[in-house]
Amino acid sequence: MTVASLGSRASRLAGSSLIVLLYAFLLIPLVAVVAASLTAGEFMRLPPEGLSLRWFARFFQRGDLVEALLMSLRIALVSTLVTGIVALMAALASQSLSRRMAVWFQIGMTLPLLIPELLTAIGLLFFLYRIGLGKTVLGLQIGHIVLAFPYCYVSIAAALRQIDPALDDASGSLGASGWQTFRHVTLPLAMPGLVMGAVFAFITSFDLYTVSLLLKPIGGNTLPLALFDFLTYEFSPTAAAAATMSVLLAFAGVAVIQKLVGLQRAF
């Protein structure tokens, strides 16, 4: 065996171990939380002391947590719907811009990604108080839409860019109106990006913390906020159960993408 082939074997080995480490780094927290949520004991601890679902039952017995979960779901759902529609319209509009304008438009649309979340949140706080929506559910909802929007927009705009502009011409020359072309050609072809953008928007909104902290309505709480409050007083596996459910929700989102458009095409 030559030195060179030994070297390439070593580098391949190093490469694969790096990947294994990386995956471990990403996945171990998830595994730990899921394992901790399944414990039969009284504390979050690894390894879990026996297996049970009682901490999930306990979660649903806590009115404040369930209420927060429902609020998070509701807000995430509305955010998804609104960003999905608005981002689609914005991405369609951006296609008729000149190349240079399109770059600026893209930057504008993704601005909430570039500015620290805290700054956006403070800005929104002032703004919402000014227009009389401070500490209201609607105000919080607006904040979530603003922050979920860029993810949705980027995904949809990328999908639209993949569509051959000649298809528009082809559809038009065959007698389709603008709306018919959109319905029969553009929308079906943008669907993978739209679904992925929607899932991104949902997950982003569901996990948002800083914005929710600053904009939360009186008497209302989102799940991340409620969990944080909960953990300051109690360190029971109920929190792990809630986290586990969040993880499952994210996986469900991925499953939706896989089912509707296929992961290969989405990423």
Binding site: D164, A166, L167, D169, A170, S171, G172, S173, L174, G175, A176, S177, H184, V185, P188, L189
Partner: peptide
């Protein structure tokens, strides 16, 4: 007359078939 009302059949260089 807009192209959709001209009743002209167009064959494109890259075919422009609807992929879906």
């Amino acid at each position: 007359t807009p192209s959709s009302k001209r009743d002209f059949g167009v064959v494109f260089q890259n075919y422009a078939l609807f992929p879906h």
